[in-house]
Amino acid sequence: PEISSAPGTVSQIKEGTSKFMKISKKMGISTFIVGHVTKEGSLAGPKLLEHMVDTVLYFEGERYNTYRLVRAVKNRFGSTNELGVFEMRDLGLVELENPSKILISEKPKDVAGSVIISTVEGTRPMLLEMQALVSPTSYGIPKRTATGVDYNRVGMLLAVLEKRVGLQIQNQDVYLNIVGGIKINEPSIDLGIVIAIASSFRNVAVDETIAVTGEVGLTGEVRAVSFIEKRIAECKKLGFTKIVIPRNNYEVVKDTKGIEIWPVDNLRQAINIVLGGNKE
C-alpha cells in the first residue's frame, strides 16, 4: 500500500517478491510464487520475477491427459537438467518412477506407422511411442498434422524423405503423434519421425523389439546424439533387444551386452535396416 502504482506493475511485483524473499530467508522456509504463463509458454507480465527468484519451475500438461511434467528452467543452487513426471489420480499428483514403461505399454503389435523412440529429457532417458499415419489426400493440398512435435521440423523431414530417399509423399496426408500427450523438442526424435512415416507409407510394421534414436540432417545423414549410454541402458531395462543409433555414437559405446546395436550413416540405410531387415 505504501507504493502508489497499480497492482501488477513492475514496482509492485518487485516489492512484493522482495518481502516474500525476506520472510523465507528469515524463517528458513520455501515459498512458491505462482505466475501466469502466456500461450507461447513464457512468464506473463514483467520478466523481473524470473530474475529475482532462485528457481523457476514450469508445470506442463495437456488438458485431456493425466500426465504432468515439472521442468526447472532456472535453478540458482542446482541443476536444471532434471525432469519430474507425474500422473493426476484421485488422490492428487503421483510421481511416475518409470514413465517409459507406462508410456509404451499400449503399443500395438504388427501395425505399420508405430515405432519406439529413445529420447532424453534433462538427464532422464525416456522411451516414447511415435505414431504416424500416411494416406492419400482427398484434396488438392495434402494435410500435415503434428501433435507433440514441432510442425516445422516435420515439414523439413518430409522434404528430406522425398529428396534423399525418394518416397513420394507430396500427394499424401501425414498425421504424427507422440502417445501420452507429451511434447518433445529434442533433435534425437528425428529418426523416429522418419521411420514412423516410412513405415506407414510402405505399410510395413516395425519390429516391436527395436528402438531408434538420431538427429537427421538436410543431406539425409544421421547425426550423433548426447547421453547415448543412458539411452541404451533404458532400452535394455525395458526389454528391447535392438537399437538403431548414429554411427558416430557407436565408437563411444562400451557396454553392448544384452542388446544388438545397429549403427547407421544415413536415412536410406536406417529405413532399409528397420523396415527391410537388411543390415548391409
Results as ranks from 00 to 15, higher is better:
E121F: 08
L191R: 04
R71L: 03
A159K: 01
L157R: 04
I29Q: 09
V115T: 03
R71A: 06
Y64G: 15
N171G: 14
I259C: 10
I117G: 08
R76W: 09
T241W: 10
K237V: 03
Y250N: 04
E129I: 04
P187Y: 03
V134E: 02
I228R: 00
E87A: 05
G16T: 06
D90P: 13
E280P: 10
I141F: 10
E280I: 14
I104T: 05
F77I: 10
I178R: 10
V34C: 04
G192F: 08
G84P: 00
V85F: 12
F32E: 09
V34I: 03
I116G: 12
I228P: 00
S138R: 08
V253L: 02
V37M: 05
M21T: 11
S4I: 12
L218M: 07
I184A: 07
L83R: 02
E280T: 15
S199A: 04
L49K: 12
K25T: 14
G61V: 02
T209E: 11
E186N: 14
P246R: 01
A44G: 15
V120L: 10
L158C: 06
V204S: 13
A233L: 12
V37L: 01
F86P: 05
M88I: 03
V73L: 06
V111C: 05
V154C: 03
P46A: 13
L93M: 10
G180I: 02
Q172H: 06
D207W: 11
A198P: 01
I232H: 01
E129Q: 09
F32N: 12
S114L: 09
I243R: 02
E186K: 04
I33N: 04
S4F: 15
N266Y: 09
E251L: 14
F201W: 12
S114V: 15
G84D: 00
E95S: 05
Y64D: 14
G220A: 02
G8P: 00
N177K: 13
E215C: 06
K230E: 14
K257A: 12
E60S: 10
A224W: 00
R124S: 04
L96C: 09
G92I: 03
A233G: 12
T17E: 09
G192A: 01
V134Q: 05
I116D: 09
P99Y: 05
L43G: 05
E50C: 11
N185F: 12
V179Y: 11
F227L: 11
D150Y: 11
E50M: 00
L267A: 02
I271W: 00
P7E: 11
W262Q: 11
Q269R: 08
E15W: 08
